[in-house]
Amino acid sequence: MLSYILRRFLLAIVTVWAITVLAFVIIQLPPGDFVTIYINALQSSGSPISYGQAEAMRAQYGLDQPMYIQYLKWMGMMLQGDFGMALAWNKPVKEIIGDRLTLTMVVSIAAILLTWTVALPIGIYSAVRQYSLGDYVFTFIGFIGIAVPNFMLALILMYVGYKYFNMSIGGLFSPQYAEAPWSLAKVLDLLQHLILPALILGLAGTAQLIRIMRANLLDELRKPYVVTARAKGLSETRVILKYPVRAALNPFASTIGYYFPYVVSGSIVVSLVLSLPTVGPLLLTALVAQDMFLAGTIVLMLGVMTVIGTFVSDLILMWIDPRIRMEG
């Protein structure tokens, strides 16, 4: 068990390292070094910096040194919690992305929770009542869910909401709460606004998880231990919920590891369409403006959050499956 956790943890560390390299590459990709871009941006905004300051910055980031030193310096800054400056805001990156990163995670986790609570019972129903009318209906909805990319779904729903219900959907807060400090009322307001983005983000995953759950459960239902459980005199509901469903949860749980990055990914585009105050729109503006510190930090942070999410889901998987717990 310990070795399993250790292995997963090491993998998580390696993944984080790979992500830092990728983020660094993204920062480096645009032509010219970022101090030049930074200086240009400051000049155009009317607060030029002196030659000496620029040189000091170059030295701080090690721009006159080889690539790997630059990378190490940047890593060092990251580890100290210094993510550099965001050009357009002329503020430290940390200040700008803090709240938005949290909201990104809130939206993603809400979508995943919704997916689970919906996909699990429907998957069970579809397997136990295979080829029933309900099974066909859910299969059909599932296919639609897979075929409609989530940003298009957002687009269509927004249009429908605007045109037929005359309401603007989008955002995570009502106007009166947007800038207000956190309070119970604000949280409730957030929860209300969360449902639609979570639904949109979760639909494709829900469809896929229903199919996975249905297929797994159909396999499990044929296994002898189900007959054993029935022969003990348990009620049918108890038999199914305690034994095959439990077994079918395994492959189901092992998909969350990959599902989390997928949802975070999707939230970026959906946030743009629904104008959610997550890091999505910020990343796009940063990339378009070549504000590479901001963009690189966002990519890095999303990656790290995902890795943590994946690691947690691995722990959940271990908790669910005694075979991993005993052997690992």
Binding site: L287, A295, L302
Partner: peptide, 16 residues
Amino acid sequence: VIRSIPTIPLWMGLGA
């Protein structure tokens, strides 16, 4: 490792 990285931000970075 590749599968646990959110793809769209990465693509966006590379595409930009």
